[in-house]
Amino acid sequence: MKGQKFPDILRKRKSEILEGWMKRQLSLAGKGTTPDELRKQCVEFLDLLENLMQNGGSLDPNDPKARPIIEFLKELSKDRVLKGFSPTETATFVFSLKEVVLPLLQPLAKNEETFTHEVMPLSILLDQLGLLTFENYIENREEVIARQQLDMAELSTPVVKIWDGILALPLIGTLDSQRTMIVMEKLLQKIVDTAATVAILDITGVPTVDTLVANHIMKTVAATRLLGAEVIITGVSPAIAQTIVHLGVDLSGIMTRATMAEGLKLAIRMTKQQTADERRDGINPLEKGIAAMQPAKGQKGPR
């Protein structure tokens, strides 16, 4: 694309193009992009486009000259994904420019020579840029969705028996609403079923521990203790530990360890201690359980 007239036209009539282009996008302004921001984006894009065309107009991603405009569109798409723009609203950025620019090229379109060498290549270039924006949008959107899915992952996480008398429950995602309740119930049921004495609750996969999550943890610990078992919380990063303290939530009565491995070590020690106690007392856990129930019966019965 040599000796083109379009970069000239672009340079000379930039403010006119800018105004027309802005007008076509005003309906998008309410969506979190302010008119000022939009104007900045448009001006930057026109500069990049001018540069690109002066450098031959190739959109080859390996061409360093094409990189600025490609990067710019990537950023724009990402921004719009986050702001909740639809794919069409995002791609409109480039396509609406085409609507403004093509009429300006009318005189060139009448001549076959300039039509082939000027109008067509520009039209194709703008289409490519529009599609690129579209593609970036989809890519970003997929990334966002994937991250969200991971984060919101249905807590189908199984409660696993990792050692004799020890259960582990890795929690993942935002610990919200009912899902947490279901998981907690599962844990309590499994404690009863397996006669476990220690449960390790690993929260490495929980991105944010706020008061709601802390409350769930505290309730789980309380319920587990009612069943005669203990809970160890693992996967508390230093940053999360500090934040919990700042929030003011008191988890001091709860056993915590930084890693699952340390939690397991502690749990094994606890179960061994318990077995040793029982051996010393000379009764097996079942007898002990029955024994524990006797006084209750005795108290109720007639004296």
């Binding site: 991105p207 944010t208 521990v209 706020d210 990063s237 940053a239 999360i240 500090q242 700042h246 929030l247």
Partner: peptide, 14 residues
Amino acid sequence: SLVDQTRITTAVSE
């Protein structure tokens, strides 16, 4: 810092 990121994110979560 990571701690501050966590603080801000937690505050927003609340």
